[in-house]
């Protein structure tokens, strides 16, 4: 499993994501996000594409902004991001915005999911995104 739920988070939900590449990290971020919000989609659910571009000065900031964007899309467009159709992460350590993310999200309308629980926000408590020997590891606690 690309992500696991952290056991010692009492009232909220925490996930730990391990991925061997940045592309897979963002793919697993979307999958974990969807699995918190939805049990499954309904049979009639149509997939809608949505392109998102985000720039950030660090990988942590990029992941934080990406989650924030997924929550924003959910609340303002009523779309639940389910998976990534396409993902490109450009890293330029010399630039001010060292990380540029360009993704195409596969989204489903909120009324076409069997919901689980809503995410209010990403907390900074225990929040970390680190490069490891095998790739990347992210720890995120969501406010529910």
């Amino acid at each position: 499993m690309p992500y696991v739920f952290i056991k010692d988070v009492v009232a909220d939900i925490g996930v730990e994501i391990k991925a061997n590449s940045l592309t897979n990290l963002f793919s697993d971020i979307v999958r974990s996000f969807y699995s918190i919000l939805a049990q499954r989609s309904t049979a009639s659910a149509k997939v809608k594409s949505l392109r998102v571009k985000i720039k950030a000065g660090s990988l942590e900031e990029l992941v934080f902004k990406f989650f924030d964007e997924l929550i924003f899309i959910k609340d303002t467009k009523g779309l639940i991001s389910q998976s990534l159709a396409q993902c490109e992460v450009v890293v330029n350590k010399k630039a001010k915005d060292k990380y540029c993310l360009d993704v195409e999200l596969n989204c489903i309308k909120a009324e076409n999911i069997v919901s689980r629980v809503d995410i209010k926000a990403v907390s900074l408590h225990r929040f970390s995104v680190k490069q490891t020997q095998n790739g990347y590891k992210a720890v995120i606690v969501f406010d529910i």
Binding site: F72, D75, T76, V117, K120, I144
Partner: peptide
């Protein structure tokens, strides 16, 4: 503006969780 956009659609909604 992001907070405003989220607020515009959610008046008289309960939310989730507890």
């Amino acid at each position: 503006d992001r907070a405003i956009q989220r607020g515009l659609t959610q008046l008289a909604t309960l939310g989730s969780g507890n």
